[in-house]
Design a protein around this nucleic acid. Sequence first.
DNA 1: GCCGTTTTCGGCCCGACTGTTTTCAGTCG
Length: 574
Amino acid sequence: MDNSGIAGALEEYATLLELKGENQFRARAYSSAARTIRSLEEECSSLLAEGRFTKIRGIGESIESKIKELCDTGKLKALEDLRAAIPRGLLELIRIQGLGPKKAKVLWEELKVQSIEDLKKACQEGKVAVLKGFGEKTQAHFLEGIERLSTTHGRVLLAYARATADAFVARLRKIKAAKRVEIAGSTRRGKESVQDVDVLVAADHAEPIMEAVRKAAPEVIATGPTKTSIRTEDGLQIDVRVVKPKEFGAAWTYFTGSKEFNIAIRQLALEKGYSLNEYTLSPIAGGDAIPCPTEEDVFRALDLRWVPPEMRENAGEIRLAQEDKLPRLVEREDLRGVLHVHTTESDGKDTLEKMVQSAIDSGFEFVGISDHSKAAFYAHGLDEERIARQAEAIERLRSKVGKKIRIFHGVEADILPGGGVDLEQKTLESLDFVIASIHSQFTMEKDKMTKRVLSALEHPCVTVFGHPTARQILGREGAAFDWEKVFESAKKNDVAIEINGQPARLDADWVHVRRARSLGLKLMANPDAHGVDELPDYTENAIREARRGWATKDDLVNTRPAARFAKEILGLTS
DNA sequence: GCCGTTTTCGGCCCGACTGTTTTCAGTCG
């Protein structure tokens, strides 16, 4: 069983323990172990084999043996016992906002509620409101929560949340009383999908801010003196908090999270004799609190370098911050060009000329055109003949744009189900680069899929492994293959791993970016843009995911100047 | 269940808000 499967099992185990009413700290231990596993760069099986698990914080004897059982057998007896004792539907139930494990347990015991359907019926019949500890409002909120869950599944893609959040923040900044307005939470950390947006405001008086937020919102979920939660017209929840300007740094750190990061730095603060909360850093021994108007103030007081939000997962970054060894994460400005760009020749919305102009406008020194290949018939993929014609068009455009940008001609070739790529060798050789991607038969069995990918990576013409898993965030699972073998082959065959910037792809994801960079593989951030409107934004998305994977400028090959990129990465002589 | 150079037992981050309560439990982040 792979890491994500193991993490999933431990997470479920933790939730079931909570639903059972077990010691919450015991449940938390499993949940935190699950998170640790999820962010591991290496597979559990190899850590187990080498006896390196004991060194990992938060995983002791008991959890290690459960991980071992999962690795060896793919099952967990303790989990199966719990599953048998607790209805599966209760796990669904606690996805409803305002309904946690305690209430779920009561609903189950008192009303025999075992599913969202059961709860809906019980609410409609008024049976929930009369329960001890429940009431009319709770019942109504449950019904609303059920409705929302069925429409949005509770999460949205980061890119979508960011767009809404940016617009909201821009409006708040116009309020005079607001000294500073910033996005916090998982949106700031760049998590791939988010549940809600956190916005933090620095102001001496909170009321005018709260009033303005309430007034402009189509729906107010909760509101108090310093915190208001609203829902926008498109269903996204935004939590707004107001703090004093001198508290802003502590608050921004706190509300950016992650939860695990917060717990860790609070612990660190305690060790240094401070108590850290969302407002201040105060000496435990008494005395005046340290004012923290900026995040740097907080980190400095804890003898830490400032940690970029994308890294705040308590996955080793705190130690690096203590030792002043944080990587300098890649920035958008470091990119000299991108490769993965489509045009109207296949399924793009804009012409070759427009896409190239967009790349020029983005300040790039080079751009690679890569339309789909013929196997992608749904996308009007190009066959050998059309690629030859496209080559002529690109040649004409080259002489037109001159030195403004260097245009590379490539293709996004399908990795066929049986392995290999779907164009003739001669055509592939004529191109400047080849991105090989999976676009069909995503659910192939792991061994077969590994073979399929390896055969593509071994193809002498392949330059980049495009959106490796072909996952769709909040949609479909990605292809399952043996990452270690794929990385090994990519290294041997000098193939770059793409970090694809489409909002629902972000593929390879940050976990595998971290692993790839620690193995010294070549990485490439690409927009996979199908229109001029997508090129800048999707490039940013790819960079953000790269940063979440701790990638530096040197880790991404498309930070090299055009001439060096052409020579070193594409193997072009002129 | 995990952790510990003050601890092998007794802690485990902590505050805002809601809805239900007669002072607080549950949920959330």
